[in-house]
Amino acid sequence: MKRALASRDELLQILDTVMDPEVPVLSVVELGIIRDAVASDEGVVVTITPTYSGCPAMREIETEVRRAIEAQGLGPVEIRTTYSPAWTTDWIDADARAKLEAYGIAPPRPASEDELVPLLRRAASVRCPYCQSRETEQKSVFGTTACKSIWVCNACRQPFEEFKAH
């Protein structure tokens, strides 16, 4: 007997269980990597967009997306990649930003604000996710993954990462 096709919301709910391998506190849906999910008689088509051109986690994300949908018996899964519109951290909503901060990663500033930072001016300070002090200092624009930069808090002396505005 044929059952009703899964709706977009149902598919997104399933995909919301797939955590980003490098930021395991957020799902690929919360990060904005999943752009669309459509079920048909042939299976499910999931459209994703990479965060960074060379993000090494994309292949693992594809594997996990496939596994999550297939585990619900909704496969086969076809993954399509789109580059337009380009991924931006502005797609990360307030709830997800709060989760990032609670996890110890300062959430991204608005990408539009980042546009305005002149070439050589130091970025404005970000709030320390541990003690909430603004007495913080950027140590390196590039961090342990493509999406993060390294900071240190001068109040509590805790090094921490910031999710880069992109």
Partner: peptide
């Protein structure tokens, strides 16, 4: 055009750095 839009964001960081 899509590849370029992504590369612009990356290149900005490269220029600043």
């Amino acid at each position: 055009a899509g590849i370029a839009a992504k590369a612009v964001k990356e290149a900005k960081y490269h220029v600043r750095h």
